[in-house]
């Protein structure tokens, strides 16, 4: 599976990389048990700092998407289920966005349409 990073995007590179990897797992292009490219290879091929790649692998391991082992590197695990606490985390991130959208006169209908469209786009 190919991922692309835009160096001049307003979205931070680690966020782009994290989203791209999770999207790959979600869409099934990266399967459970598969081994991801090493930190060195991925950083070198994308031309981005190795710390950034290491950070993203660390976050994905914390969130349960991958497992980091000494010999095997990063192996894709079972997609983690969301518990109550995790759900609350996402709500915290979403709330400011909902507030900003409502402040710009987006009505509930438009909001739902946008969410539906993004839902479909998320698996490319």
């Amino acid at each position: 599976m190919i991922i692309s990073i835009d160096a001049r995007s307003s979205v931070p590179i680690y966020q782009q990389l994290k989203t791209a990897l999770i999207a790959g797992i979600l869409s099934g292009q990266i399967k459970e048990g598969e081994r991801l490219a090493s930190v060195r290879d991925l950083g070198s091929d994308l031309g981005i700092n190795l710390h950034t790649v290491r950070k993203v692998y660390g976050i994905l391991a914390d969130e349960g998407y991958i497992e980091l082992t000494r010999n095997q590197g990063a192996v894709v695990g079972k997609p983690p289920k969301l518990d109550k606490e995790g759900m609350a985390q996402f709500e915290k991130v979403l709330l400011p966005i909902v507030i900003e959208l409502r402040a710009r006169d987006i009505d509930k209908e438009q909001y739902h349409q946008m969410m539906d469209r993004l839902w479909d786009e998320s698996i490319g």
């Binding site: 835009d6 990266i30 598969e34 081994r35 991801l36 290879d41 091929d45």
Partner: peptide, 9 residues
């Protein structure tokens, strides 16, 4: 373009 691409698997 400032996009770079790589193979993950």
């Amino acid at each position: 373009s400032t996009v770079s691409s790589a193979q993950v698997v």
